[in-house]
Nucleic acid binder design. Sequence first.
DNA 1: CGTAACCTTGAACGACTTCAACTCACGTGG
DNA 2: CCACGTGAGTTGAAGTCGTTCAAGGTTACG
Lengths: 258, 258
Amino acid sequence: MALASDNPRDEQRDVKERLLARPAPPAPKIACFHCPARTSDLCRGVADKDLEELFASSSRIRLKAEETLILDGDEASTVYNVISGAMRLTRLSGDGRRQILGFLFTGNYIGLTPDTLYHFNAEAVSDVELCAFDRRRLETLFKLHPAMEATFRAMAAKVIDQTYDLLFTLGQRTAVERVASFLLYLREAEQCPGKPGAPLHLPMTRTDIADFLGLTIETVSRSFTKLRTDKIIHLVDAHRVEVLRPDLLLAAAGEEAP
Amino acid sequence: MALASDNPRDEQRDVKERLLARPAPPAPKIACFHCPARTSDLCRGVADKDLEELFASSSRIRLKAEETLILDGDEASTVYNVISGAMRLTRLSGDGRRQILGFLFTGNYIGLTPDTLYHFNAEAVSDVELCAFDRRRLETLFKLHPAMEATFRAMAAKVIDQTYDLLFTLGQRTAVERVASFLLYLREAEQCPGKPGAPLHLPMTRTDIADFLGLTIETVSRSFTKLRTDKIIHLVDAHRVEVLRPDLLLAAAGEEAP
DNA sequence: CGTAACCTTGAACGACTTCAACTCACGTGG
DNA sequence: CCACGTGAGTTGAAGTCGTTCAAGGTTACG
């Protein structure tokens, strides 16, 4: 990886500036109509007739895998909606430890915090396409569209609920339970729950999963193996998991009696 | 403890109904003026002249230690502000495991969730005095008082920040680090940071601390002992801790190099 | 004064980590 | 085209930290 600057913060900011400066790519008049995130989260509450307004206040940006979008302490002036790919929210300590606070997929949003600053980093797990909104304009939009406001509340509630779930997982569950919980979390968080038989896609590395669950990569790997030898999942490869027995997975997560 | 019903949920709800039904105790015309929570969190944004309005929409309630205020799944129709005492927010699993999501002290609020339901339990750690607001009325008040809205945002941001801190603690820190972090958390969360030399009051039991930090009570106790033998704290008794060396406590929490 | 609840301490155990070796997929360049 | 190097993932063996089990101590209250 070529380093243009010896200050990682500056370097990352350069990436961000460059991406934000780039005008929206040549897109259909109103891209929102065909946006994969049209029916989810941020935009769901907007009526078709208001899409133009929403589109006008947005701009598309792209990130390559591992690029940084937000640094802890940045001013929270922009709200992002994930159109495709996966992002991660992280918090770091001085001595290099990292906790992943959550993953974000198509339709999830980043940055609608009540604070004026972000208190986490946001990085791309895979190549990512985002829709960026000016926060003030978006909040004005909320006031104009009660349905959007309601949708936002539901989204925020879901985020809080997921965060509490993760707290419970980190505080109370064993390694295998954590990994099982993680797979259930992914099943819910990843967009298409349409295909029940389709294997689950894990865009993140074992290191990401470990830093999310408060484990080491070795323990994560061993837990996957345990679930595999128990015939609860099938590991197509390291990034594709087929859930063979959802009921047993639930039990393995400590959610129910087997 | 006398059981009026064999269903704990009903029993607890009875407590709640009774307390909510009780009219505000004989108080000065506008109790808010002398409320210990006047200058913190929910009410800080209200100008003196608007206090009457705020007071009119509120009612005082009291809880004894260990009484339940909110059950997971209850309708989120009321917002509470802690006037005195300590509360805890918890999440339970079917098999009896418990994670404490946070503690609440004077000036902290409970229940301003974006959802229509609560997704946690709220219980009194000590005897507690609360101020109850109808949520809809409070939200209307927010719209009328921009300063209140701003204050609410700051409060919500603090809660999220603390929750992320706890996530990091549970995922990344060792036992002693967790307990040290807990003491730092208490120092910040408990109202009066005015007296730097005064011992910290821990109203909760070791079991509460353990369920907050994802440890057992034995490990919590051993960690306190470790901090004591290292001359970082002085254990006046089980519920009073004097921080002798704030710098070393910070280092013990893994926040900085010693 | 006795009981019970809470806290502390000790010893043995077990779960997860650490350290290390090995496999596999992929990409690069000889 | 294959050798080589690299990075990610898996697996094994040893070690460590926190848990479990057990006992003793302290405090509060009837």
